[in-house]
């Protein structure tokens, strides 16, 4: 359990990060900026990995993973989790807006009805 501590720590931190993303309050401009920076970084890393494949393996070795391809897989796993978390959040937001809209519609109708046809007592 304690061999290759470096990669394990990195991956676990990634998972914790995703979890925090899931539970944190709604994202603002700052959040978006961070996400864009991460995307730029990701593009650069991808380009590097294509141009200099041995580099990826060196990085992998450095963090204690045998091959660059394995590191890629780990990275993808975390990224995928992050994607799931982000889209879950967006879904919740949409659902929320949808609910408020539908409720307002239903209430407008019912309140209008109540005002114009006073209930028998």
């Amino acid at each position: 359990m304690l061999d290759q501590p470096l990669i394990k720590v990195i991956l676990l931190v990634g998972i914790v990060g995703v979890t925090v993303l899931l539970t944190r309050s709604t994202a603002g401009a700052r959040h978006q900026a961070v996400r864009r920076l991460l995307l730029v970084g990701f593009v650069l890393l991808a380009a590097m990995a294509i141009l200099f494949p041995p580099l990826l393996t060196q990085v992998a070795r450095f963090v204690g993973v045998g091959r660059g391809a394995d590191l890629l897989l780990y990275g993808l796993t975390i990224t995928f989790l992050g994607y799931v978390a982000a889209s879950y959040r967006r879904m919740r937001q949409l659902e929320q807006q949808n609910t408020i809209l539908a409720r307002q519609l239903a209430l407008n109708h019912a309140v209008h009805e109540a005002r114009h046809r006073p209930k028998e007592s």
Binding site: T99, A102, R103, A106, L107, H109, A110
Partner: peptide, 22 residues
């Protein structure tokens, strides 16, 4: 009863909130 009708299914929590708002 007075009636409020959701246009589509939103769930029990949403229905409660709608009733309270009403």
């Amino acid at each position: 009863a007075a009636l409020v009708t959701h246009p589509f299914n939103l769930g029990q929590g949403a229905a409660l909130q709608t009733g309270i708002d009403y």
